[in-house]
Simulated scan of single mutants.
Amino acid sequence: MWKNHLIIAYRNLRKNKVFSIINIAGLAIAMAAGLLILKYVTFELSYDDFRKPSVYRVVDYAYRMDIHWWVLLLPLLLVFLVAFFTVTLQTVKTALENPVKSLRSE
């Protein structure tokens, strides 16, 4: 089974060279970025693993402001609504369009 998958992958690489290079480069960049983010997060979470327990990270600031939950929820809802209405309008526009016109332009 794996042999067949490898043969199909090799044939697709030879058939679609440019798209394959773009896909592989995108995968490599995404994996490198993911590893860098993972290393950064593990470094930040291990700030007190190698120090004495008497050393603490400064967490409280002098000019700290309390943020209400709805301030963070409002932009999220706004983005969701814009995306929802955009997809809905494009779907309705495509559904009402004559299919012959779209086939002629392809």
Rank of each mutant, 00 (worst) to 15 (best):
L89F: 08
N98H: 09
L74E: 04
L45E: 03
I67H: 08
S54Q: 11
V18H: 10
P53S: 03
V82K: 03
F19G: 14
Q90K: 03
K3I: 09
A30G: 04
A32T: 15
V92P: 06
R104Q: 12
V58I: 12
D60W: 05
L81K: 02
P75S: 06
W70A: 15
R57D: 00
V82I: 15
Y63P: 01
P53Y: 01
R11C: 12
L6R: 03
V100A: 11
L81S: 09
E97M: 12
L81W: 05
T88K: 07
W2S: 14
V58H: 02
L6F: 03
K101M: 09
H68P: 00
R57T: 02
A30I: 06
Y40R: 11
K17R: 15
V87T: 11
S54K: 11
T42L: 04
K101N: 11
N12T: 01
L38K: 07
D60L: 13
S102F: 09
L35H: 05
L73A: 15
S46Y: 01
I8E: 15
V41C: 01
P75W: 05
V71G: 01
E44G: 05
L13D: 00
V71R: 02
D60E: 11
K17F: 08
L27Y: 14
N23W: 13
E44V: 09
T86L: 09
I67N: 06
L103F: 11
L73S: 08
D60C: 05
R64I: 15
S54H: 07
S20F: 02
P75T: 05
R51N: 05
L45N: 11
T94Q: 12
L73P: 00
I7C: 07
Y40E: 10
M1E: 05
I29T: 14
S102I: 01
M1P: 03
L45M: 04
N23S: 14
L35R: 03
Y63Q: 09
S46W: 01
L96Y: 06
F84V: 12
W69N: 06
R14Q: 09
P75Y: 05
P53M: 00
